[in-house]
Amino acid sequence: MYELNDRNKIIVFTGPDGSGRKSVAEAVGQTFGMEKIVSFVTRSQRPGEVNGQDYHFITHEAYDEMEKQGEFLESVEIDGNHYGIRSLDIESKLNHIDSVYLIMNHEGASILKKIYGDKVIRLFLYTDRRTVEERERALGLPEEVIEKHLSHYDLEMGYRGSCEHAFENYDLGQTTYEITNTLETYLQRDLIDKD
């Protein structure tokens, strides 16, 4: 397996669907100049999602073939759909930059932690159930998708205590600021606060 160097860090944004993981992850990733590792998924594209940016949307058959070839570092099934991260994507990016970030559920986050140990920093984002529901409705997600997400809410919330850090996310700017300060100790980029 690929040997990470001392400066390599894998930042994992996790928490319930609708907790704002994507928005915060993108803002923090931009602040630190980190590249995102994009998962492969067999579910269909949702409103506002961009293929190759949010996920690589592929067929079940293509996914099965990649899995047979041993391409996935982690692969999980959620509500009949498969989600996977290729080891090649992580390792090729960490060859030329120090840190990458991913957005994953608790299963994927646990698998990466087992593989890469203290190189993985899990950031748990959460809001209350009603806020999750309101955000998902505002995105125009179908009711059955919202119901499925809410059915996983308690299970995902149970993972909070396993993560290195947890952040309540009601205000994007505030949460991004808190996470940036937290990650500074890991990434040692010497960002200067210009306030």
Rank of each mutant, 00 (worst) to 15 (best):
E3C: 06
E3Q: 08
V12S: 06
D17G: 10
G20T: 02
R21P: 10
K22C: 05
K22Y: 10
S23C: 07
S23Q: 14
F32N: 04
F32I: 12
G33E: 11
M34A: 01
E35P: 01
K36P: 11
V38Q: 06
V41P: 04
Q45W: 00
Q45A: 09
R46M: 15
G48A: 11
G48V: 11
E49L: 00
N51G: 14
G52A: 12
G52P: 08
T59R: 00
H60Y: 14
H60T: 14
D64W: 00
E67L: 14
K68Y: 09
G70Q: 08
G70V: 06
G70E: 10
E71R: 12
L73C: 12
Y83L: 07
Y83G: 03
I85L: 15
S87N: 03
L88I: 11
I90A: 13
E91L: 13
S92G: 04
L94K: 02
N95M: 03
N95A: 13
L102R: 04
G108W: 04
A109S: 09
S110D: 04
Y116E: 04
D118P: 00
D118I: 02
K119I: 08
V120F: 02
R122K: 13
D128N: 14
R130D: 15
E136W: 01
E144Q: 08
I146A: 01
E147Y: 05
K148C: 02
H149E: 01
D154T: 08
E156N: 11
Y159D: 05
S162H: 10
C163Y: 10
C163E: 07
E164C: 07
E168C: 01
D171C: 06
T176E: 08
Y177H: 14
E178H: 12
T182A: 06
L183E: 03
L187R: 05
R189M: 14
R189K: 15
L191P: 01
L191E: 10
K194D: 03
K194N: 07
